[in-house]
Amino acid sequence: MRYPSQGILPHTKKKKKIQTLTDGEKDILAYYIHNQKRSEYLPYNDELVRELQRLRIIDQSSIVSSCL
Rank of each mutant, 00 (worst) to 15 (best):
K15P: 04
S39M: 12
Y44P: 01
E25M: 14
Y41P: 12
Q53N: 08
H34W: 11
H34M: 13
D59G: 04
I28G: 00
K14P: 01
D27E: 14
I57K: 04
K13E: 14
D59F: 05
M1Y: 07
P10R: 08
D27G: 02
S65T: 05
L29Q: 03
R38D: 12
C67K: 07
K26D: 05
L68Q: 04
R50H: 02
Y41T: 15
M1I: 14
I18T: 04
Q6G: 11
S62A: 12
K14H: 03
N45T: 10
R50C: 06
I18G: 02
E47W: 12
T22N: 07
E51G: 00
I58V: 15
R56I: 01
S66L: 09
R56D: 09
R50Y: 01
K15S: 11
R38E: 12
Y31F: 08
L9E: 09
H34S: 14
N35L: 15
L68S: 04
T20Q: 12
Q60K: 13
T22L: 14
E51N: 13
S62I: 15
L48G: 00
R38P: 01
S66E: 06
K14R: 15
T20L: 09
K37A: 00
I63C: 05
I28P: 03
T20D: 12
H34E: 15
Y41M: 14
L48E: 02
E40D: 13
Y41F: 15
Y3V: 10
D23C: 06
S62W: 04
R38S: 02
S5W: 06
P4H: 05
Y32R: 06
T20P: 00
D27P: 00
D23I: 10
Q53F: 03
L21G: 07
I57S: 03
T12W: 13
A30R: 13
Y41N: 11
I8Y: 10
E25S: 01
K14L: 13
L52R: 00
I58A: 06
I28F: 06
I18V: 10
L52T: 00
D27W: 08
V49M: 01
Q36Y: 02
Y41Q: 12
Q6R: 08
I57Q: 08
I63E: 05
Y41I: 15
P10H: 07
T22K: 13
D27L: 11
E47D: 06
Y3L: 12
I18M: 14
Y32N: 06
I63D: 05
D59V: 05
S66K: 07
Y31D: 04
I8W: 09
K37H: 02
H34A: 14
P10W: 06
